[in-house]
């Protein structure tokens, strides 16, 4: 009965939302969004502060925001403050997981599965590759799809692999903590330096370079590496917390 009622309700609500959106003349139909009316138009044209004309990959330099990946430009430059908040959310929830699951962790969680030698060694080999990919993705966030968050997750995945493939493995949690702390603090410090030098928080104080080159976009690659390290260490921390328990 309860389930049926819930079904009816959710169906009803879904139908109402759909029809309401459908009848809403101001709401653009799927695929008919007019970007020209939106703020994102300026992000694509990079003409928030001044109009650089047509931006051409590999040629235009000195843009207000340098990444070739426009999403990165938004995430790490135009709306970098959101990203700081986002990092904080992840930070505080990782911290919360650590708080909730106890701090006196000594040993791995007992699981029935015992990996064999091949798996252990093989996964260690794979670990390096995944780690490197993660770092690569973080560093190239301003050029290609990806960036600090996927890169960081990938770094954490490599740790997860080690955890799963070896039931005795423990990472040095203390190291993660230091890394996390330094990366986070640096992010904020970069912001504050920007405030001191550039007059506003998180302003891009470095030269943005030529769009499309690896060493371009000013602080964005730095920020993304920091985010990558931070996210990686945080998620690794979370993994560690879930896979260990109190004991000898």
């Amino acid at each position: 009965m309860k389930n049926f009622l819930a079904l009816i309700l959710t169906l009803f609500l879904g139908f109402l939302i759909m029809s309401s959106l459908n009848n809403n003349i101001a709401f653009p139909k799927f695929g008919e969004a007019n970007i020209g009316d939106r703020v994102s138009d300026a992000y694509i044209d990079r003409d928030v502060t001044e109009n650089p004309g047509d931006v051409i990959f590999g040629e235009t330099d000195g843009l207000e925001s340098g990444p070739a990946n426009i999403v990165t430009a938004i995430v790490a430059d135009y709306r970098s403050f959101d990203t700081l908040g986002e990092v904080t959310v992840l930070f505080v929830s990782a911290l919360g997981v650590a708080l909730l699951l106890g701090t006196k962790k000594q040993k791995r969680l007992e699981i029935d599965f015992h990996p064999n030698f091949m798996l252990r060694v093989g996964s260690k080999a794979l670990f390096g590759v995944i780690l490197m990919t993660g770092i690569y993705i973080s560093i190239h966030g301003h050029l290609t799809p990806g960036g600090g968050f996927p890169g960081g997750s990938m770094i954490a995945t490599s740790m997860l692999l080690l955890y799963l493939a070896d039931d005795n493995f423990r990472a040095k949690v203390k190291g993660f903590k230091i890394l996390e702390s330094i990366a986070g603090s640096l992010y904020v410090l970069i912001g504050i330096i920007g405030l001191i030098i550039g007059g506003s928080f998180l302003v891009n104080i470095l030269d943005t370079g030529v769009i499309g080159e690896l060493f371009s976009a000013g602080i964005i690659p730095i920020v993304y590496v920091l985010i990558g390290l931070k996210v990686g260490s945080e998620i690794s921390n979370v993994i560690d917390n879930f896979l260990t328990e109190e004991g000898a």
Binding site: L9, T10, F12, L13, L16, I17, S19, S20, N23
Partner: peptide, 16 residues
Amino acid sequence: VFWIVIIVSLLLWGES
């Protein structure tokens, strides 16, 4: 959550 759903539904229904 139930109340949220109910209220949104009723209000939207009313609007339509």
